[in-house]
Structures are given as C-alpha cells and as structure tokens.
C-alpha cells in the first residue's frame, strides 16, 4: 500500500543572477497518517523549501511529493499551511480570517453549519473570545493561534507548519506548543513542522528529520522520538531519555553539521 505522504527524490535548483544554485538534493521521506514530523536544520539549509514544495508553492526540479497516492500539483487547502508570521489578513477580523478559509473549503454547507465550524476551530485554539478583533489588536501568540485555527478549519490531510513559533517569546511559545500537542492528540492530524528549536522538535515530534547544510542539502538522519504521549514538559525535563534524544539532535547539528560561518 502506498504511503500517506511520500517525498520521492526531490531536488530543486534555483536560477539566480549568479548562475544556478542547487538547494535541495535527493530528499526521500515517508510519513504515516497521524504522524508528527519535524524538519530541523541550520538556517539556510532549505527546510522551508521542502515545506513549500509539499505545499505546492514551489515546484521541485526533480522528484515529487505524493499525498494519498496522488502527486502534489500546486497549492491547495488539503495541505494547509501555518505561516511563520501568521499571515492573517489585517483588514479582516479573527472570525472573518477563518471564515475566508471555511467558505472556500465548505461552500456546500449551510451558513449556520459554517458558523459553528468557525467557532469550533477558534475554540480549539482558545481564541473564541477574540473573534471580533482585528489582527492588529491581538498579540503575536494570539495571531499565531488564529493562523493555526484557520489551517485546522480546512480539515487538511496534512498540516504544514513553517517555524510556527519562531517569532514568539519563549513563554508564549511553550503555551502554543502545549496547545498544538493537545489539538494533535484530539484530532490526530498529520503534521510536517519546520523548526530550528531542538527542545520544540523533541517535545512535539514522533520523528525528527535532520537536514544537512546546503548547498545540495539533504536528509542527514532521522531520529525516532519514542517518548510516550501525552508528554508534559516538566516531567520530560527530568527524564534522562529525553535528554539523551535532545543530545543526539544537538550532536548532529553542532558536531556533524557545524554551522557555516554565519
């Protein structure tokens, strides 16, 4: 049987003013339904490029992504993206931002059903109280929550998260990570998340995909995170196995893939 999500021999070459640039080379990955996968690597290694190819926002030069056995062509709501800087439309309220997605994906449902669905998704991220606010009136963490609600409301086959918490302070980030774990436990989403935060990757993921440095970046190693769920960050802080896994990621990033002079 075909994999749920599969990346096959993906490579991409960008044409720049100074000739062509080989960004990714031979990316192969199989993801099962309901799995939480993190892609980690140094900045500039092309992890966001991988995500954009799966999202359909970029076209791979070679290889392709298969979702439920079908080749990914162009973007679509079945591969909803949570963007790094929330990307809420500032002229719409929180409710309207989610509504834009829901109307598009569930145009056949009645108005009342769609309204319930929008509020349901806002409740999932604990943002129902701010439904009439505009993005300019809420904090960065709240915006990102709404961005997640918007993506979830599309009922995507796979949820793509591009450094979703990168722009947030540490405390807000921890809060949102907990929310994402809760939601994923409840809904069983398949998630592909880009991150550069080792703790975040270990806490949230079933597997961590570690990428080598570019140019021609590829998957260096895949680490299984066999920590039992539900996970609790305070418990994990005392768990030697957690520290061992964390150490393995750190070793990959800082010994085997020394950061190039930035």
């Amino acid at each position: 049987m075909a994999q749920y999500l599969e990346l096959q021999k993906i490579g991409i070459t960008f044409k720049t003013a100074r000739g062509s640039f080989r960004a990714l080379d031979d990316i192969n990955l199989k993801v099962e339904k309901g799995e939480f996968i993190s892609l980690i690597g140094h900045s500039g290694c092309g992890k966001s490029t991988v995500l954009n190819i799966v999202a359909g926002l970029l076209n791979a030069t070679e290889g392709f992504a298969l979702l439920k056995g079908k080749e990914v062509k162009g973007p679509g709501p079945e591969r909803a993206v949570v963007f790094q800087n929330h990307s809420l439309l500032p002229w719409l309220t929180v409710y309207e931002n989610v509504q834009l997605a829901v109307n598009k994906v569930m145009g056949d449902k009645t108005k009342a059903e769609r309204k319930d669905w929008i509020m349901h998704n806002l409740k999932l991220v604990h943002m129902e109280h701010a439904s009439d606010k505009r993005p300019g009136e809420i904090s960065g963490g709240m915006k990102q929550r709404v961005g997640i609600a918007r993506a979830l409301s599309m009922e995507p086959d796979v949820l793509l998260m591009d450094e979703p918490f990168g722009a947030l302070d540490a405390l807000t980030r921890a809060h949102l990570q907990d929310s994402v774990m809760e939601i994923q436990a409840e809904l069983g989403n398949t998630v592909l998340m880009i991150t550069h935060d080792v703790d975040e990757a270990v806490l949230l993921s079933d597997r961590i995909v570690m990428m080598t440095n570019g140019p021609a970046a590829t998957i260096g190693e895949i680490l299984d995170i066999d920590l039992p769920r539900p996970r609790e960050r305070l418990q994990l802080a005392k768990d030697p196995h957690y520290h061992q896994l964390r150490g393995q990621v750190l070793e990959f990033l800082y010994q085997r893939q020394m950061r190039p002079a930035a």
Partner: peptide
C-alpha cells in the same frame, strides 16, 4: 502586497 497574503490566497485556491 506581501507575498504571504498571496500565499494564503493560493493555499485557499481563490
């Protein structure tokens, strides 16, 4: 117009 907004539009297939 920020590319982000256009990305949102293409993910939603507007």
């Amino acid at each position: 117009i920020p590319q982000d907004y256009l990305n949102v539009a293409s993910v939603l297939k507007l």
